[in-house]
Design a protein around this nucleic acid. Sequence first.
DNA 1: GCGACAG
DNA 2: ATCTTGTCGC
Length: 271
Amino acid sequence: MPSISQPDLVPDASSTRAEMESQQREIAALATFEDRFSFDARRITNPLEAASADKPLEAASTDGTQPIIAGVDQSFLLESEPERALSAIVAMRDGEVLERVYAVTPLEIPYIPGLLAFREGGPILKAMTNLSVEPDLYLFDGSGRIHYRQAGIATHIGVVLDVPAIGVAKSLLCGDPADSLEGLAPGTRVPIEANARVDAPEGTVLGYAVQTRQYESGTRSINPLYVSPGHRVGPETAADLAFGLAAEYKLPEPIRLADRYATTAKREYRA
DNA sequence: GCGACAG
DNA sequence: ATCTTGTCGC
């Protein structure tokens, strides 16, 4: 795993709530919500678009400079005593799985909206210890800058390790969509702006609601994802990458596979 | 007091 | 997140 760049900011579940919140403000101040990475993000394009394009799929994936992208997700063993978290990581390159690892740890604190990183951050860092490859980018299940103090779990882990990170949430923690989110077409995005409840100037674009998939017809519609910068990635690029990494499903592949692995690994672990 | 609230 | 049967829709 990458070295710890900010030892003092490693999530500590024994901190008081006030300490956690002030640490988050510190993290937000250290975070970079702009593109600061070395790989070529333009080469990450939606597999479905690539397939429909004129050139063969192989053409978009040749040399060995493709970035390693890791998806991170958790499952929980809530029946055990104490409750435990299973953190799973799937590292991919060029649409291929390079490595899958997981770690199980006891949970220290309950889920509190806004303090997720203090519940799941430890388990995640432990799982990273088992990785042999060094990802160029991490995708987390949860928010990044779309957070009361602009320091969601993707930002927290990103800053602690000083690695490019993006938050991909399935529901909106805070902020206001700049427009309606009903029945958006695939590829569409809507800015999520800071409001009075967010520690940022009102109207600041914190991230985007991103529609990766949509039903062709019908009454129901698929909800968008809420994508925001974690660290060293700007909001537009974060949205581009989330969309580009989604294949046949709503979730970007690295996260979808991490989600599945977290579930299957839990079965193995119990047995 | 009331409402909102990632996973 | 997790616990779970049926059920609506293509």
